[in-house]
């Protein structure tokens, strides 16, 4: 749905990094490089980014306003 505020396992705040991650990966940088540069060292935090499917834009269309 939307990127979690914190890493599920260790609790590190991560949601502010996701926009940068998306942009840089879209520009062609490798995911490993971007994750390293963003300071996500542990594999728990990295897994949150790698496994995330950003469905909020699609889901939001279905909201009755």
């Amino acid at each position: 749905m939307i990127i979690p505020q914190r890493c599920w396992s260790c609790g590190k705040p991560i949601s502010h990094l996701f926009e940068q991650f998306k942009e840089r990966v879209a520009k062609g940088e490798s995911k490993k490089e971007v994750l390293d540069a963003l300071g996500l060292e542990r594999y728990c935090c990295r897994a949150v980014f790698l496994g995330h499917v950003d469905l909020i834009d699609i889901a939001a269309e279905f909201k009755k306003v």
């Binding site: 939307i2 990127i3 505020q5 502010h16 996701f18 939001a60 909201k63 306003v65």
Partner: peptide, 29 residues
């Protein structure tokens, strides 16, 4: 909508990371 958009009553107590995402709004929301 990010954490930094919120107004605090005390300027010394503010979000550490102003870019943390609260939610996402579409047109009309």
């Amino acid at each position: 909508v990010v954490a930094g958009d919120m107004d605090s009553t005390d300027k010394s107590v503010v979000p550490v990371y102003p870019d943390m995402v609260i939610t996402k709004l579409l047109k009309g929301q």
